[in-house]
Design a protein around this nucleic acid. Sequence first.
DNA 1: CTGAAAGCGCTTACAG
DNA 2: CTGAAAGCGCTTACAG
Lengths: 350, 350
Amino acid sequence: MARRAHLVKKVTSQDVAKLAGVSRTTVSLVLNDVPGTHIPESTRQRVLEAARKLNYYPAAAARSLASGKTHVIGLVLCEGPDKVSADAFLPDVMRGIADEVSKHDYTLLFHTNVAPNDPNSYMKLVRGHHIDGLIVSAPRSDDPNLPELAKSGFPTVLHGRLPGTDIPFVDVDNIGGAEKAVNHLIALGHKRIGLITNAPVSFTSAKARLRGYEKALEKAGIPLDENLIRYGYFLPETGYRAMTELLELPKPPTGVFVASDVVAMGALAAVHEKGLRVPEEIAIVGFDDIFASAYTVPALTTVHLPAYDLGREAAKMLFDIMGGEDFENRHMFLETSLIVRKSCGGVKVQ
Amino acid sequence: MARRAHLVKKVTSQDVAKLAGVSRTTVSLVLNDVPGTHIPESTRQRVLEAARKLNYYPAAAARSLASGKTHVIGLVLCEGPDKVSADAFLPDVMRGIADEVSKHDYTLLFHTNVAPNDPNSYMKLVRGHHIDGLIVSAPRSDDPNLPELAKSGFPTVLHGRLPGTDIPFVDVDNIGGAEKAVNHLIALGHKRIGLITNAPVSFTSAKARLRGYEKALEKAGIPLDENLIRYGYFLPETGYRAMTELLELPKPPTGVFVASDVVAMGALAAVHEKGLRVPEEIAIVGFDDIFASAYTVPALTTVHLPAYDLGREAAKMLFDIMGGEDFENRHMFLETSLIVRKSCGGVKVQ
DNA sequence: CTGAAAGCGCTTACAG
DNA sequence: CTGAAAGCGCTTACAG
């Protein structure tokens, strides 16, 4: 019951100053390595030594109250629980962000924003001066905070594109990636190529991947057949359902581009259940290259999404912006690459 | 180049006080809902109204400097990059923590601690008074900070067991879970049961799952055969290698408990490559129940690990401790459950 | 080059 | 019940 105080005695810059025989000003100056100050090496060393000896770390709150900067950036995930659970990239994206953040000696705040109008919205973080900058992952066009954020000029980077705003973003080149996937199928001789999207087209990534599919067909002179298009929704079961429908078509596709590996896992299951063989009877290309894709049966040919880099570049861009760089029209698309495994075979069909 | 100031004018408690016609003290009192204060409803409403109208949010730094509490808890991951990337649970664990944290109106700091002696260690967070409490995930016995933390009395909860300390922890019941897996195989009639661990036994979860395997065999009167035990290391390729070795034994096992679904994916691939059928020729039980396990071929029978609850309970325990509850010997083991799918078949072998 | 002092925006005893 | 005032531990002009 008794609340025990932490035994760590709080050491302040005053203590360090005293031990080093200087003022708190000097302590602050050397510890923060303030540019433009020429402090004699001997003094500097005395201060550093004293700080080390006392195991001194500046109190974050005091520092940020005085300086006006928090040295923390926020990461907010605008995804519902089901989506987050299946989010195979989150760990890598976060690692990318975290690496960059800690390089700048910043710290990362993690926040999930369940609904567009979440009462416990991430806006509290910016309004309460918890953070100096913000990365919004999987932004939604119905999020009322984003336009406001943009107007206020608060340093913000979107992870995932959001058309209709000029907020800087980094995203993967979904159109190009989808084209690569479909081109692969085309090169293998497929003419009836189906599509199962990763999500409804209200998600920009889904729309872009659909667009890539269309472009690839168009360039190859293959007419678009709406019957061959189905819509997934992040989870395997949606892929299962979509693929089952495709397979029950009078004339099923010979190859299917499933715009999400997770959804593709369900699609694969549907194919197996029908007793069909992949790639002999139907070829499948995925998108995302989650680590499990190398271990499906057969191993999934897919489009690699650079999750780590996505996180890292988003953080880099944010620091640029916080550093005062012009942030008008800062948009970045990361390249994807096709990973050829077993689910399409190597032989041309006809 | 020009750094533009955010257009949000800073509104302080002074502004709210003025608008409501009260003092800052009163503003603070009502906004923080300080117990033991009897402020007339009318005054309270005026303050609330004023705060709403001005869109006022207390400055985090000032609040924490004055109160001595940061209202943020830290989550530190003690895992190398490769492990993190394959960490299928991270999203769910974080969601569990985040939900609990935001319920308490706290905020979550995310930090990865790559090495035991990371110069950019999480201790900076506690020393610099960034956080009020700490959840350490996947703690390592060679981490020099943990004993120090324990001694200092800083509110800490381990996510994952660490023998040899009395730091409170929440962990999954790995021994019990492994027993369930192996018992399932035994009930199906298997006598030669192999084990592929999830990691070297220096990891406590690996040691516990190995222990569960031993206990199950022992209770069933099946002698332990060291030849049937192989060691995985988190990644699928290690399972592939281990299973290949097992399969090349003069007398291979008829059933294998692979103590990690991720590792099991590699093991499955090895079996398929040998042209063997699962479960007819060899049965496999996994552990973890990552979402992909429902979509392997055949779908993996496995032991469900309650990732979300793990995160949530860890956070709950931490808040209890921060709230002054006695934290001696606070240990919690979460139950697992066997998820029967297709990889063991339903028929008894002999 | 370095120090004294103000100030960041809150909370919290302490009076009244 | 409410307000004036001190204080949290830094940083940062400003003097010297």
